[in-house]
Computed example of a mutant assay.
Amino acid sequence: MRKTRKTTSAAQAPLLGPRALNRATLGRQLLLRRSRLSAEAAIEHLVGLQAQNVKPPYFALAARLDGFAPERLSALMADRAVVRIVTMRSTLHTHTADDCLTLRPLVQPARDRELTVFRAKLPGVDLDRLAALARDLVEAEPRTMKQLREALSAKWPDADPQALAIAARCKLPLVQVTPRGLWGRSGQVALTTAEHWLGRPAEPAPAPEAAVLRYLAAFGPASVKDMQTWAGLTRLREAFERLRPRLVTFRDGDGVELFDLPDAPRPDPDTPAPPRFLPEFDNLLLSHADRGRVVPPEYRGRTWQGNQAYATLLVDGFLAGVWKLDADALVVEPFGRLDAERRREVTAEGERLLRVMYGRSSPYGVRFGTVLR
């Protein structure tokens, strides 16, 4: 059971049950009704997309946008309007160029904490000097992590090579240059600084209050701990308290205080939620301390096996199964029984996804089968 401070005001605040939280979050995440936003505007609204692998951001937008085509996101990457960079939770995200230059400074304290884990493996290493040398290397030409390890090891032979490269990534805002991330092309990971790639300097980190407002617009209603989970940051309560006069509050079934924007959509809990196919690591499942608004208790942990994350299926707004692209089919494995109407809806949504991503000549069909092993 979560331990979260309960205040008198929280105890008196209106209750939001799991379905109310689910519909509100799906609405903010563009998953109740597909949006006509451009890919770039959607990425900005969602404050980035989780992007450990190349394809998930494409599938994330396909689930959320009406009229999306993967070539549109690919073009944004080629034009440097969006980039791939480590930000939230020390994981790779796709961000707009503007957000890249501000959100990375916002989460720098988390990168500094990450660096302390490796400090013992860096005897005699001046981290500021390492950052300056690494910057010179990657701005002279994009470097792979292997090339960065080798170059830095030549300067500090007694240090752990992997720790040297990670230190450079923690100290510098390193972006993955194209063709990495392009649809149908991609390539190996090569890095340079965000400032060099985008041709302009980093900007000051936004005030924590501004970040809170953007988080609530995309993920609310939410608790302080929810946002800290999303950002990988700590000590955000003061920012929420400063904003309290501008926000509305609710409580969940455990009495945890939830904050929200006064005019943000909070749809009726009975609002229909069509099936949606989400990629592995989708923001929807990773951006709250309590995932009960999307993940039923009986399905907790079902989307992971070891280090393997599975793409997920939503039915009626909640996690209901996993899926994968096999040799000739989009294979769907529901966690429970789907009646005939639900199966038709899931099949239709899968067929739509395949048309969006691969065109009408897609080699894939949709079938129900086994994904988890």
Rank of each mutant, 00 (worst) to 15 (best):
L101M: 06
A42Y: 11
P142L: 03
D136V: 02
T4R: 04
Y358M: 01
L236K: 00
L338N: 12
W156I: 03
A42N: 14
I166D: 07
L21H: 01
L26K: 03
L49E: 10
P157R: 03
A190F: 09
R33C: 02
L330M: 09
Q228W: 08
I85E: 09
P123Y: 01
H95D: 09
L133A: 07
G67P: 05
D128L: 04
W304G: 10
T94K: 08
M227W: 15
E44I: 01
L236R: 08
R200C: 04
P265G: 13
A63H: 04
S287E: 05
V177E: 15
R119T: 04
R293F: 05
A190C: 07
P18C: 00
H45I: 00
P272A: 10
R291P: 13
A222R: 08
D128Q: 15
R36N: 07
L152Y: 05
E203G: 06
P296Y: 00
L314V: 08
P265N: 13
E298Q: 09
R300A: 02
L65E: 14
E298D: 03
G359A: 12
R104E: 14
Q108I: 00
E238K: 15
P157T: 06
A165T: 00
D99Y: 12
V322W: 10
A165L: 00
C100Q: 12
L26E: 05
A211M: 09
G365L: 03
T8Q: 14
Q176R: 01
A207Y: 15
K324L: 13
R185F: 07
K6S: 04
L314G: 02
D79Q: 12
S223A: 14
F219Y: 15
L216T: 04
K55Y: 13
P221D: 10
L284S: 07
R28E: 11
K171P: 02
Q147G: 15
R300W: 05
E141I: 00
K171W: 02
L338A: 09
V82Q: 10
R80A: 14
E114L: 09
L31E: 01
S362A: 14
A311Y: 00
G365V: 03
T347P: 07
A222W: 06
G306I: 00
L216A: 12
L261P: 14
R337I: 04
L313C: 01
Q308H: 07
V83Q: 13
S287L: 02
L15H: 12
M357R: 03
N307D: 07
F259H: 15
T87L: 08
E341S: 05
N307S: 12
Q147V: 07
P56S: 04
L122V: 11
P57D: 14
E139R: 04
R237C: 01
A320K: 05
L137E: 10
A163M: 00
H45D: 13
P161S: 03
L16T: 13
S74I: 00
G301V: 10
